[in-house]
Nucleic acid binder design. Structure first.
Lengths: 113, 113
DNA sequence: CATCAATACATAAGTTTCTGATGTATTATT
DNA sequence: AATAATACATCAGAAACTTATGTATTGATG
């Protein structure tokens, strides 16, 4: 089972920024695999959504990039800028707050923290 | 403070269906007010998003409607169809599952259930 | 060694869905 | 009398995702 795409909308940036917070340096394909692994396949980021988002975050100064060659294959590593570090925390905190609001609104019980 | 609109995207249907599950009969404006009240203003549904969604849910057979007049002012009440009842549960369950996945992914600690 | 799968990037047409504005009309408040 | 609140609806434009396509390298498999 995997989530309807509309659920993932709005959380893509948050997921990317959190992963980069934890791993400091990741490339696009690696992000898709990491998310797939960590969520047991429930969240599968598509390239058509991921790459444009990474480009936009870079254009906004939230991410910085370094291109490397592994053999002849190119890899573009993304890292958080200092502003990106701040934005990452803000996004995660906002989502944490959102979860609490939605749990109340939808009357959802979850396991212990 | 209120949430960035992108966060609310993808949860609008779920919120509507859950409210109608609990209240059995609501009209559009009432839904906006109820959500605002229950979330202390953190989630404010806009009419431009709400009404088209209600119309779509009705067209899909998930909601049924009854129009009433309060004085000369019209009110359109929405209720869950039998299928809507099922979809409501599914949506809430899916979101509950999604919350758990995201809590793990974002390393979020929340209060006790 | 030939073929397919996986790795790794990117773009783009079409669709969906929201934003923000506009419009109409009734009722309550000041 | 004028403004705010109630209550519906629609629409142009924007934003963001889906799905497909494209290019190229590397690993696995029979």
């Amino acid at each position: 089972m995997n989530y309807s795409s509309e659920l993932i909308k709005g959380t893509l940036k948050t997921i990317i920024l959190k992963l980069l917070k934890d791993n400091s340096r990741m490339y696009g394909y690696e992000i898709t695999q990491k998310v797939k692994d960590l969520t047991a396949g429930k969240i599968q980021l598509t390239e058509g959504a991921l790459y444009p988002t990474l480009h936009a975050l870079e254009a906004d100064g939230i991410l910085t990039t370094e291109t490397e060659y592994i053999g002849k294959r190119v890899r573009k590593y993304y890292s958080l800028s200092s502003e990106g570090n701040k934005v990452s925390d803000e996004k995660v905190n906002e989502f944490a707050d959102f979860i609490n609001t939605m749990k109340f609104l939808l009357d959802i019980k979850t396991g212990i923290a």
